[in-house]
């Protein structure tokens, strides 16, 4: 029988990756007008895949963090495009909520099993 850690590992790891990606996108938005700033992002799919194959979350995250290629480069060398970052930020926030509700569902299932209802 799998341990509780193993049961919650998938969604727990996904939640951590989601929150790290949220941090990165927030950093991009914060630096929207810093000359020379290069926007970074996390390739969630690949990072999650690597995490599922037994790698640590931090390792998976650093392996799949890359620089954004701007749709239209700006003169000051800044690669933040607010429309792109805002959309991804909103999308990522919703996906975080989704992962969180999966996790909450798992926890409440376990709780119900324990109570024997």
């Amino acid at each position: 029988m799998p341990s509780l850690d193993q049961v919650l590992a998938l969604n727990g790891g996904a939640l951590k990756l989601r929150s790290q990606r949220l941090n990165m996108l927030a950093s991009n938005i914060a630096n929207a007008s810093t000359p020379g700033y290069k926007a970074k992002d996390l390739d969630f799919d690949r990072a999650m895949q690597q995490a599922q194959n037994g790698s640590s979350i931090d390792q998976a995250m650093s392996d799949h963090t890359g620089y954004r290629v701007p749709l239209q480069p700006s003169l000051d060398g800044n690669t933040v495009e607010l429309s792109v970052e805002q959309t991804l930020f909103a999308e990522n926030a919703i996906q975080y909520r989704a992962t969180l509700s999966f996790l909450q569902g798992q926890v409440s299932s376990i709780r119900r099993a324990l109570k024997g209802e």
């Binding site: 939640l15 607010l82 805002q86 909450q104 926890v107 409440s108």
Partner: peptide, 28 residues
């Protein structure tokens, strides 16, 4: 105008982060 927009964006980021963190810690 650009400054005001950037400021608003950061406020929005903060609000979103706050609500996500609150939802996480109020995990029922």
């Amino acid at each position: 105008l650009e400054t005001a927009r950037n400021y608003q964006n950061n406020v929005q980021v903060m609000q979103t982060a706050k609500s996500l963190i609150l939802e996480t810690i109020r995990n029922k």
